[in-house]
Every structure is written in structure tokens, then in C-alpha cells.
Design a protein around this nucleic acid. Structure first.
Lengths: 344, 344
DNA sequence: AAATGTTACGCAAACGTTTTCGTGTTTATA
DNA sequence: TATAAACACGAAAACGTTTGCGTAACATTT
């Protein structure tokens, strides 16, 4: 790559000082019209653009927001990024995305990479491994220095910073109620291990809905899946029991769609024999047969809010109170729970 | 945010020079053991980390790769990013992702933002609007200075740089042949406008397969969809004709899945009445009913290759020949084209 | 005692930019 | 004609880091 043109080189070319060139290019009236125009023409011809690194160093401001997410091949997270991008761009910021791959080590690495001058602030969704081992030193190092930080979706209660979450409890509550409304008596929950914060919150909503209506909790109806193993074989167990469920709430789209397919393979009709709802953010639910009712998560809005919180914090020198925004969910009702088709 | 600790501040604290501090922290033997250890302890206590911007400016190297894609909420593109990330990280690089949103203007903006010192090289998939208006000045400005650049998927032939593409022609060729193999006589192509490079390449493969087998081309079977309008109503036209097709090749997953659903609504059986194949990268195809046969695109591999080409170019001072890597596709055969179900 | 070597540090340049302040020259005013 | 104002530009610091070179003070060798 050819060396880029700099103020210094232009200055040498015209035998003037660097400051003269800088001022000339900014159209300063301190510089005579003749010199100004000659310098501008020259710079323009050689396509001069100020070096960003130098500017950022001088201004002590990068106008870049760092985002660290567990995965990028994930409809929900990419939707959130989209929301962040949109708000950030409009405010003159750019976005730098790094992936932790659910790994604690890589998360820490990304922290040290981004939080050392490269970005003005950080938006993070915590890696699974970090949630599991509960080591939060890298977060504490940031909050200690009041580094602008926003946590979203997978958050850590112990860390003091701005947060934005979806109403997981409420979403699961609504969904479970809806299943009962369409007649389901035995509702299975297909969820993740408890250390995944959203998983346990959704379980909470599920339990709350049941107890509110006086339905007794059956621990055997709660299935905790492990993403490292084969999903279908884990989900089959939901059906291969003496008294199988007539309703399913799955904490994500993949679980729900797999459950739907397996149920059909087992000869069950949906929603006649069993109604299914999944939390979602993707496109799968609309294309299954029947299409899946789902809890919509509004990732874009979440990204928007996270970016807004972060930029407010970056730009306000006076310390603000830490906010926790809760994004409410809504039920998108499709045929997998349609009332008309109920058997009982 | 509290001001970060710097070499200068540590130097003042110990009444030594900045260089002494720098050397002490690097464990240099030029510095006496006592001073070295005291400085290290102090720096460690205050969690000193060198400022990245300063390092990047000094070293004239950021170890960051910029990626500009048309959309991020898109399974294919996020898979490619994943592939880029994986290779780049392993080589000590980080990835900065920007989205052009299919807009020429935003693409140019991202260029000037990233290619001015912020990154060591750029991996780009061209925005639709840029492909449409064919204004490539921002690309030319880079290649003129031999700035490391890799184009992927949506490429520009006129621009001299490394490229990596899917074998779009071959994929469509295979898919069309497969449709004919399972007995389809009238195969419709659901594609995009011609200016989308992958769209026209896939069309080329489709045409080639037909002519190779001596099937006459029927232009009425080629449907060019516009993403800005309602998809279902555009796709319905495929079926609402006197002599509807018995096979469909769609250039992406969404088109294919919509076609499948609409076909079923029209009372057609799949694959008995009509066989369907889509190009894909996402998860939808596996969850439709019946599941869709598709042309797999290997986005991860594509990202890997793109990153490899770019990093080679960044690290080799001697100019290399421009390479064009072609990633071959393969057909994932599912029930939407199963041979057993053929009517004729 | 003189020459040489070693230790332990500081200086200053370099990366590229912006901006404040200073200054020499010209022009306008009294 | 002296003085003030206007003009056109340069010097230098600042952002934070690294590193080659210079050099005092002390130690070792002949």
C-alpha cells in the first residue's frame, strides 16, 4: 500500500508550515486566498483525508461505540446491532462489533481490546461462560473508572451500569396464560440451564402464570436443554412419557420449531393435540406449518435504547443515575395456538 | 468517565521520565530492579493499559479489519462475518463491522470512515444501490493507492482487487438440473433485478442448464421481484397463469419459503405438483413443510477465505497478483424435491 | 592513575492532527 | 511620519506511546 498523503508532505511541497496547510484546508481566513486555493487544489488532487487515528488521539474521542455479543449468527443479536447502528449513526457514532463466542476468555480479550482508547463506550451482552463462572472483574474494572457501559439482554445484576432487558418474566407469563386460555392443561417448558439469565427469568414467568391460576407445578414438565448436545433427541423426551403435555412454551425459536416438527413426527396435530409457543426474533416461526405463535422480542428497539443510554452517558459529563429499561414483549398469535382448533 | 492513567502520570508520580516508565513496564534491563518493580506494582494497581490509539498511530498499524456489508440482519452475511472473525482473530486481527444498508451514500461514508487510518484493510460486499448506479469512485480511490481490499459475494468486475464469490452459475445449474431430474418440465425462476450481480449469475446458471438439455427458454417463467414491494403478492403471479410451472428455483431462501407457502395455499402439493429449490444460508429451509431442498452457500468458508486474502495482502509488502476465489456450492436435497413423490 | 566498561536513566524524535499564541510585514489612520 | 490596525504565516504544545542515542555516575581493568 502506498503511503498516504499527510499535512507534513503537503507543507514540504509548498515550503510552508504544517499549521498553514491545516488552516488552508479548513478554509481559514488567516491564510491568503492564493495560498489557500493552491493548497486545497493540491490536497484535493491527491485525495487528502485527515488521519482518523491522529484526530481521535488529539480529540480524546473516537466517536465509535463498541459492541460485544456472544454470537453474530443469531437473528436476535444481529437485530439488536441493527438498532444500535441506526441510532448511533444518526448521532454521529460508528459501531465496532466483536464476538465473544460465549467464551469468558474471548470476552475479556475483547474488553481489553476495545476499552483502551478504541471506543468511547461499550454495549455488551454477557457470554454464557461468564454467566456460568460468575467472574466479573473485567466489568468491575470498567465501572470503577465510570467507563460508559450498557448491558443488554444477558445482564449482570451485581454490576452497576445502564441496562436494557426485555420483559422476560412478563413475556413468559403472557405466553403461558395464552396456552391455558386455549385450553392447555399440562404445559411443558423447554428452556436452558438456569445460569442463563433469560432462561431462568422466562421460567419465572411460566411458574408465576401457573401458580396465579392455581395450577400445580410439575417439575417433570420442565426440560433444560444443553445446546452442546443434539437437540432433537433431547426434545423427543418431552413426548416420550406416559402423560405427555398438551402445551409447550419454548424459550427460543429453534427449540419451538424443533418441538413442532417432532410433535408432528409423533403423529400429533397442532394445535389440536398440542399448542406451541416460542420466544422468537427470527423468521422461522412464520414459515413452519402451522406457523408458530411467538413472543416477539423487539431486538431493534432494544438496540436503539441501549445506544441511546450509552450515548447519553458518553456525552453527559455530570454522572447520571443508572437506568434499567424494560422492553415489553407482545404475543404474535398464529395457528400453532389457534383457539378454533382446540380439541378439548 | 475518570481520566485514564498514562505513562506521563506514572512518570510524574515517581519523578522519572516517561521513557523510564515505558521501559520499566516492558521489563527492560536498562532500568534498575528496584525502580522497575515499584513502577510495575503501581501501574498494576491502577490497572494501566497502553492506549491503543497511540500505539496504532505510532506503529502505523491498527490490526483491525473493516467489513462493510449491505445488511446485518441477514443470515448469510452474518455467517460470512463469523468466518472473517474466526480467521482474523487467529491471526491477531480484530474486526470492525459497518452496514451500508444497501445505500450508496452510506457505503461511501463508511469507506471514508474506515479507510483513513482506522483499519489495515477492508472486506466489502457492494450495496445494491451502488450496483445499480455503477459509481465506483470510492473503490477506485482505494485501489489506486493499493489499499488492501477484498470484495465478496456482490463484487464489481471492473475493480482490480482480490475477490471471493460463490459459484452462483454452477449452483443454479446444479439446482435446475436437479429439478429436471425429478421430472419438472416448466421451471420458473424467481429472482431479483438484473443489476444485483448474484441474481443475474444465478439466472445465467438456470439458462445454461435449460439450454444444455435443449429445453426452450420461456421468458414468462422468469420473475424479477422487487424487495421494496410486498413479496407474497408478487409471488402469487407465478401461479396465477394458464400454464403454471411444475418446478421453481428461487435465488434466496425467503423467496423459496414464500413460494412454498403460497403454493400450498393454492392447493398444490409439494413436490407432487411442484418441486421447489432455493438458494439458502439460513435456517428457514429446514423448518418448512415439506423442508426445502436448497443450494448451500458456505458463508463461513467465504468469510475465512476473504480474511485470508486480505491479511496476506496486508502483510506482504511485495504486491501480489489479484486472486479470485470461487466457493463451490452443493445441493442439500430435502423433501421439496424428493424423487419418490413425483407425479409424472 | 588512566582507560575502559557498565549501569541507570533522560532526551528527543516519530506517528498526524489542531489550535493558541506570537511576530514580522504591510496597510491604513491620525 | 509616527502609530495603530490588519494581514499572513510559523512555532510549539498537546494527545500517548516507543526507541535509538547520549551521558552522567560509578565500577572494573591495566
Amino acid at each position: 500500500m502506498k503511503p498516504r498523503i499527510t499535512l507534513k508532505k503537503i507543507a514540504k511541497e509548498f515550503s510552508v508550515s504544517i499549521s498553514t496547510v491545516s488552516k488552508a484546508l479548513k478554509g481559514s481566513h488567516e491564510i491568503s486566498e492564493e495560498v489557500r486555493e493552491r493548497i486545497q487544489a493540491y490536497a484535493n488532487f491527491y485525495n487528502y483525508k485527515p488521519n482518523n487515528l491522529a484526530l481521535q488521539l488529539r480529540n480524546q474521542k473516537t466517536s465509535v461505540i463498541g459492541v460485544i455479543i456472544p454470537e453474530i449468527v443469531h437473528h436476535f443479536f444481529s437485530t439488536v446491532i441493527d438498532g444500535i447502528e441506526q441510532y448511533a449513526n444518526q448521532k454521529g457514532y460508528n459501531v465496532m462489533v466483536c464476538v465473544s463466542n460465549e467464551s469468558y476468555e474471548k470476552e475479556v480479550l475483547n474488553f481489553s481490546l476495545l476499552a483502551n482508547g478504541s471506543v468511547d463506550g461499550l454495549i455488551v451482552s454477557v457470554a454464557r461462560e461468564t454467566q456460568e463462572n460468575k467472574i466479573y472483574k473485567h466489568f468491575e474494572a470498567l465501572t470503577k473508572d465510570e467507563f460508559p457501559l450498557v448491558l443488554f439482554d444477558r445482564i449482570i445484576n451485581e454490576i452497576e451500569c445502564d441496562k436494557v432487558v426485555i420483559d422476560d418474566v412478563g413475556g413468559a407469563f403472557k405466553a403461558t396464560n395464552h396456552l391455558m386460555d386455549v385450553g392447555a392443561k399440562r404445559i411443558a417448558l423447554i428452556t436452558t440451564e438456569d445460569y442463563v439469565s433469560v432462561g431462568s427469568l422466562r421460567k419465572e414467568g411460566y411458574l408465576k402464570a401457573l401458580t396465579t391460576r392455581g395450577v400445580e407445578i410439575d417439575e417433570n414438565l420442565i426440560y433444560k436443554l444443553n445446546d452442546k448436545n443434539d437437540l432433537p433427541s433431547q426434545i423427543e423426551k418431552v413426548f416420550d412419557v406416559p402423560n405427555p403435555p398438551d402445551g409447550i412454551l419454548a424459550v427460543n425459536e429453534i427449540y419451538a420449531a424443533n418441538a413442532l416438527i417432532i410433535a408432528k413426527e409423533k403423529g400429533l396435530s397442532i394445535p389440536e393435540d398440542i399448542a406451541i409457543i416460542g420466544f422468537t426474533s427470527g423468521l422461522i416461526s412464520a414459515f413452519t406449518s402451522p406457523p408458530l405463535t411467538c413472543v416477539e422480542q423487539h431486538g431493534f428497539l432494544m438496540g436503539n435504547q441501549a445506544a441511546e443510554l450509552l450515548i447519553n452517558r458518553i456525552e453527559n459529563s455530570a454522572p447520571l443515575e443508572f437506568k434499567k429499561e424494560v422492553i415489553s414483549t407482545n404475543l404474535k398469535i398464529r395457528k400453532s395456538t389457534s383457539l378454533a382448533g382446540l380439541k378439548n
